[in-house]
C-alpha cells in the first residue's frame, strides 16, 4: 500500500475498509422505515440497514425478496445522520449500481434476499461504495474479500432469533484463522486449496493471525446476552435484524443490546441491561427449518 497521494483519492481499499473499522464495537440494526431508523439511532446504533422486510417477515411471507424501493432508502437516509447500508441480491450488480447511485454508505450483498446469480457474486472492486458480505467459514470469507468485500459478517441464520448458527459461524471463521497461524509455510499451499481461497490471502492471515477486514456477526441475535456472547467469541460488532423490531419494546431492547455490546465482558452491565425488556421475538429453532429454507446456504 503506497502512502503517496498528492491528489485526493476516493474509493481506495483503505477508505472502504476504514468505515467498517469505525463501526467496530457497535450494533447495526435492520430498519424498514424512517421511524424505525430514528428509534435505532436514538438507541445508539452505529449504522442502520435499510430494507423492505426484516428477515423474519421474508421468511413468513415467502416470495422473491429484492433490493428495497429507492424512496424507502432515501427516506431513511434523510431521517438519520449515522451511516445507512442497504442490501443487494447476491450477484445482482445492477441493484448494487443503483444503491451506489443512491449514495448508500455500505452495500450488503446478502443471502437474506433471493440470489440473482447462482454462480457468480458481484465484482465488488468496480464500486466506490464498500461492500459487506456474509460467510459461514473462512474460505467463503476469503472468496468474498478476493472479490472486493471490505467487511465480512458471519451469516448465522437470519430471521430466526436462534443464535446457534451465528455461534457456529463465528467460531468456525475465527477457529480457521487460528488454525492457519499454526501451519508451517510449506503447508499453506494445501491449506489454500482446502479453503478454496487465494493463496496470498491465506498466507497473509497465517502471518497476521487476523482477517484483513472487520468481522461482524449476524443472524439470530435477539438479546443483549446474545450480542455480548458474539463479542466474547471475537466478533468486532453485531448486526441485529429482526431481533429488535419483532420484540415487545424495540427502543428499550435496542438500547440494551448497544450497552451489552460495549460492555460485553461485564456481566453486571449485561444483567442490568437485560431487565424489563418485555417480550423477545418469538423465533424459530433452526433445527426445525427444512434445508431449503436455510438462508445461510445461499452463497458459496
Amino acid at each position: 500500500m503506497t502512502d503517496s497521494t498528492p491528489r485526493p483519492s476516493v474509493g481506495s481499499d483503505r477508505v472502504k475498509r476504514g468505515l467498517a473499522e469505525m463501526l467496530k464495537g457497535g450494533v447495526i440494526m435492520d430498519v424498514v422505515n424512517a421511524e424505525q431508523a430514528r428509534i435505532a439511532e436514538d438507541a445508539g446504533a452505529v449504522a442502520v440497514m435499510a430494507l423492505e422486510r426484516v428477515p423474519a417477515d421474508i421468511r413468513s411471507q415467502g416470495g422473491v425478496a429484492r433490493s428495497s424501493d429507492p424512496d424507502l432508502i432515501e427516506g431513511i437516509q434523510k431521517a438519520v445522520s449515522i451511516p445507512v447500508m442497504a442490501k443487494a441480491r447476491i450477484g445482482h450488480f445492477v441493484e448494487a449500481q443503483m444503491l451506489q447511485a443512491l449514495d448508500v454508505d455500505y452495500i450488503d450483498e446478502s443471502e437474506v434476499l433471493s440470489p440473482a446469480d447462482y454462480v457468480n457474486h458481484i465484482d465488488k472492486w468496480n464500486f466506490t461504495v464498500p461492500f459487506v458480505c456474509g460467510a459461514t467459514n473462512l474460505g467463503e470469507a476469503l472468496r468474498r474479500i478476493n472479490e472486493g468485500a471490505a467487511m465480512i459478517r458471519s451469516k448465522g441464520e437470519a430471521g430466526t432469533g436462534d443464535v446457534s448458527e451465528a455461534t457456529k459461524h463465528i467460531r468456525k471463521i475465527l477457529g480457521e484463522v487460528r488454525a492457519l497461524t499454526a501451519l508451517s509455510p510449506d503447508e499453506l499451499f494445501v491449506a489454500a486449496k482446502e479453503l478454496q481461497a487465494p493463496y496470498a490471502l491465506v498466507a497473509e492471515i497465517a502471518e497476521s493471525g487476523t482477517l484483513p477486514v472487520v468481522l461482524f456477526t449476524a443472524g439470530g441475535v435477539a438479546t443483549p446476552a446474545d450480542a455480548a456472547m458474539m463479542m466474547q467469541l471475537g466478533a468486532d460488532g453485531v448486526f441485529v435484524g429482526s431481533g429488535v423490531f419483532k420484540s415487545g419494546d424495540p427502543a428499550k431492547r435496542a438500547a440494551a443490546i448497544v450497552k451489552a455490546t460495549t460492555f460485553y465482558d461485564d456481566p453486571q452491565v449485561i444483567l442490568e441491561a437485560s431487565r424489563g425488556l418485555g417480550e423477545a421475538m418469538v423465533g424459530i429453532n433452526v433445527s426445525d427449518l427444512a434445508a431449503p429454507h436455510r438462508l445461510a446456504e445461499r452463497g458459496w
Binding site: T5, R7, V10, V15, L19, S81, Q100, V104, D105
Partner: peptide
Amino acid sequence: RRNAFGRQRESFEVD
C-alpha cells in the same frame, strides 16, 4: 461540522 464531506462515497485519502 459532522459528515462535512458527505457520505461514504466521498471518503478519501490525501497528502
